[in-house]
């Protein structure tokens, strides 16, 4: 096939477009009209592109894949190391400010006088950290987060898809959404206590409220920013309305939905801790507030760090699931993960 170096085989790699090289294979059917291709364009650029490459058209794609792979790997490792280094510096600086602030009892408007030292907090962590009571507090918080968050997904994503897709649904739901949305989850605390039969349900509800609106709004935005030609393509290929939702609109909105999940998870933690501090029994927020009431300063910091680590873990999991579910984003134009 195509063993003769006809003009077209030459002209294509010259453009520097590695993939178009395949074109020469495609047209090598018996009735291949290849040789005359450049003539057909009659474009002024054609002659100069043919002349220099004519003697050795096959040499163009000879960069070995292994070299490229090694280069990428090297680049990747270096990138990773740099990122890790910067992360260590940033966390280290925070720690040093804390360390020196408490060591020298820094006091200039900001008062480090009562702030526990890292050693005290570490000691607290070794004493309390693995105690049953503390783990129970963590378990409570995690359970509330999971419940609130997954209920928010279960309602927010489908509702967002429908609101985004159908104008009438949007016109019906959006006024309520716009009224309720500015109310912070913390402001729901008194109402939630009245509304729900027990404290536990009230806290889950507040967590849900925190996660719900970011998820809903980002899902709607995802549907709106979906390229209309994809929906039309789906229809042309015979997709029914339900199939369209499942096979085009949902996967097409997924990147935005995951943005909503990440934001929603953050707000859910904020809401949960506030709710636990005000109305709770058990939970990391309750633990932190109780420590303040009992003037147990190291425990306050321990509680705060625990909240930070839990929040970080949750958003890390979301990001990981996102990468696993949407491998194509690695190649999206301008989209680097």
């Amino acid at each position: 096939m195509g063993s003769m170096a006809n003009p077209k085989v030459v002209a294509i790699p010259i453009k520097g477009d590695r993939v178009e090289l395949v074109d020469t294979m495609t047209t090598s059917t018996p009735e291949n009209p290849a040789p005359q291709a450049p003539a057909a364009t009659a474009s002024p650029a054609a002659p100069e592109s043919i002349v220099p490459a004519a003697p050795e058209p096959e040499i163009v794609p000879t960069i070995s894949l292994r070299d490229i792979g090694r280069g990428i790997l090297k680049q990747f490792t270096r990138e990773r190391l740099t990122a890790l280094g910067l992360a260590l510096i940033s966390v280290g600086t925070l720690f040093l400010i804390w360390y020196f602030g408490t060591k020298y009892r820094f006091e200039f408007y900001i008062r480090f006088k009562n702030v526990p030292t890292p050693e005290q907090v570490f000691q607290q962590a070794t004493q309390v950290g693995l105690s049953n009571a503390f783990l129970v507090n963590i378990a409570y918080s995690v359970r509330r987060i999971l419940l609130g968050f997954f209920i928010a997904i279960a309602i927010g994503v489908p509702l967002g898809l429908f609101i985004g897709k159908y104008r009438r649904v949007s016109e019906f739901f959006m006024p309520v959404v716009e009224i309720l949305r500015p109310i912070p989850a913390i402001a729901w605390v008194p109402m939630a206590i009245m509304l729900w039969p027990n404290n536990e349900a009230a806290i889950v509800y507040i967590t849900f409220i925190g996660a719900f609106f970011p998820i809903l709004l980002n899902t709607i935005h995802g549907v709106h920013s979906l390229d209309g030609v994809l929906v039309r393509a789906g229809r042309c290929l015979g997709a029914s309305e339900a199939q369209l939702f499942w096979n085009v609109i949902l996967p097409g909105s997924l990147p935005h939905i995951f943005t909503g999940l990440a934001v929603g998870m953050g707000v859910a933690w904020v809401s949960l801790i506030a709710a636990e501090m005000i109305s709770g029994q058990f939970g990391v927020g309750y633990f932190t507030w109780e420590a303040y009431s009992l003037v147990d300063y190291p425990a306050i910091v321990l509680g705060m760090i625990t909240i930070g680590v839990l929040g970080l873990t949750c958003s890390g999991i979301i990001r990981m699931v996102g990468v696993l579910l949407m491998p194509w984003l690695a190649f999206a134009p301008g989209g680097k993960r």
């Binding site: 077209k8 002209a11 178009e20 009209p33 450049p38 474009s43």
Partner: peptide, 9 residues
């Protein structure tokens, strides 16, 4: 243009 011509074929 070049790609176009090939695509037509």
């Amino acid at each position: 243009t070049q790609t176009r011509v090939v695509m037509q074929e």
